[in-house]
Design a protein around this nucleic acid. Sequence first.
DNA 1: TAACTGTACTACGCTACATAGTACACCTAT
DNA 2: ATAGGTGTACTATGTAGCGTAGTACAGTTA
Lengths: 127, 127
Amino acid sequence: MFSIDPMSRCPVYEQLVEQVETYVLKGILKAGDQMPSVRSLSLTLSVNPNTVQKAYSELDFRGIIQSVPGKGCFVSKDAFYAIEKKKRSHLNGLKDQIEEMRLAGIEKQELIYLINQIYEAGGKEND
Amino acid sequence: MFSIDPMSRCPVYEQLVEQVETYVLKGILKAGDQMPSVRSLSLTLSVNPNTVQKAYSELDFRGIIQSVPGKGCFVSKDAFYAIEKKKRSHLNGLKDQIEEMRLAGIEKQELIYLINQIYEAGGKEND
DNA sequence: TAACTGTACTACGCTACATAGTACACCTAT
DNA sequence: ATAGGTGTACTATGTAGCGTAGTACAGTTA
């Protein structure tokens, strides 16, 4: 379910965090679902338990999972809402990138086309 | 002309590279313009000459400036084209981010509105 | 000649990241 | 109660990237 690219410039623990968020958004991980244990996931991904623990700790801090000592880690009830809220706050970052695209001569119509493509394809996926 | 945020997680030399690119896109830096010398810019920004040199080396590698030993560094003739080409290749990265926005429930119309806002404001800037 | 330019190199310190190992407290099934 | 799972905390080590410091060399220009 999870995959890691050790050669990426992005830290392993951060890759894990982002994958969990994406899976929650896609509905693959749902509220109440139990996450793999720190030790089992570290074996699966061939990384150190501390690295997984760091990712889980960050996810807990963000309110996406809830850690229960002795039992396990579970997807938080408000996980989707927490991520949605974060993504929405990142609209400003997206704005800056689009501005760079405009400066680089990318036409407005190209971006509109891109968006249409994504939203149409996304809708079809759920058919 | 240039400014650095030492507290940013983004390396200083990378901040410099991005600023030069942005200035070229905005037309503030034009082909043939001479860049500040490695040593003078390092004094202005209170960073090490090696850090500036690393940025200039990267810009040279990207074809955005041309280093001439003994004379100085000059904005390349094809600087704008090189950056435009790079930005266009980053459309895929933008696509992934928009897809994330869609998954997070951001409406298509919100993004369209954002784009309209940016392209209209950008046009007015040149009046 | 002197002062500027870019370039190259070594050395040091700092931080982030990842690993390794150990230990503790909690829960649960046996 | 015991054993084995769970999350958590801690120290120690190694590596890589980044930034700084200092020095040196070659080319250009006034």
